[in-house]
């Protein structure tokens, strides 16, 4: 069984700073990581391969430095890595990204075997749109299983997969035929630690590198900034909270304490006081 996992290299959001003067995001020096959701997808793919045999290919679109995350994925145990990189892809939104990735996936299918399953993470932590997975499925005309929290059963004879999907208000159990695209939720598994052999293999591996032309993209207006209808109007840092915590005296009876608390709130926000009084007056 051939499985492809789409991963993305993202800035470690825990370590991003906002420039105190210009208020822009300072990406310089911020370490990058594999999008955490993608790791759950990758581990799930590796488990299926270990159980049923086959190969796991990881695919990423990004700048040349994204090769680091591919190598890391190889260290975890992936068999092959493909980097899709081209300056024409710069500035891609989710539409342009899913287009480029779907073209690369077609080529992967042609060269290394059609994948029964394509995995992506639920969403990326630097975009949070959750659109790329479904976008790829649509373009490749595949079934899609999104927000998957568990793979229940894989039936290679009938070529079906059964999963649990987190939906609003409950868990759905869904079954799909292959080929399918699955987007994985967080905390579904724990990423393994690759063996010495995996690590050595990864350090040596040649990463397959394709540009737009290599994956057969002729219409460059569908790529990068030009192919991206999304417009980012403004990026801003939410103002920090400046209010200090105030402790109300922990003495006296509960009523006295409650009164002290209310006094403190009213003192801080006279509007609240006025509002409450108005409402109360209204009732009488």
């Amino acid at each position: 069984m051939h499985i492809v996992v789409c991963i993305k290299q993202v800035p470690d959001s825990a370590q991003i700073r906002v420039h105190p003067v210009t208020n822009t995001i300072m990406r310089q020096g911020v370490p990058t990581i594999i999008n955490p959701y993608d790791l759950f997808a990758l581990e799930e793919a590796l488990r299926l391969r270990d159980k049923f045999g086959g190969e796991v290919t990881v695919l990423t679109m990004g700048p040349p430095t994204a090769v680091e995350s591919l190598r890391k994925a190889l260290t975890f145990g992936a068999d092959r890595a493909v980097l899709l990189t081209d300056r024409y892809f710069a500035g891609s939104d989710t539409l342009a990204t899913s287009f480029a990735l779907s073209m690369a996936l077609k080529k992967i299918g042609a060269e290394f075997g059609d994948p029964a399953i394509i995995f992506t993470g639920k969403q990326t932590i630097d975009g949070d749109t959750a659109q790329v997975g479904p976008g790829i499925a649509k373009r490749l005309d595949r079934n899609q299983l999104t927000y998957v929290s568990k793979i229940v059963e894989t039936d290679l004879v009938n070529r079906t997969i059964t999963v649990e999907r987190r939906a609003e208000g409950g868990v759905q159990v869904l079954q799909s035929r292959f080929p399918v695209l699955i987007t994985m939720l967080e905390a579904t598994n724990e990423m393994r630690r690759g063996s010495v052999e995996n690590a050595l293999k990864a350090a040596r591996a040649e990463v397959v590198t394709w540009n737009a032309e290599a994956v057969g993209i002729e219409d460059l207006t569908q790529c990068g900034l030009r192919g991206s209808p999304t417009i980012v109007k403004k990026v801003f840092a939410p103002g920090g909270r400046t209010d200090e915590v105030q402790l109300v005296d922990n003495e006296g009876n509960p009523e006295a304490r409650a009164n002290a608390l209310i006094d403190a709130i009213f003192a801080r926000s006279p509007d609240v006081e006025k509002d409450l009084f108005d409402q109360a007056a209204h009732h009488f």
Binding site: R193, G194, S195, V196, E197, N198, A199, L200
Partner: peptide
Amino acid sequence: QTDRQGAPI
């Protein structure tokens, strides 16, 4: 020997 599973290098 490393902390990864596998034989010595």
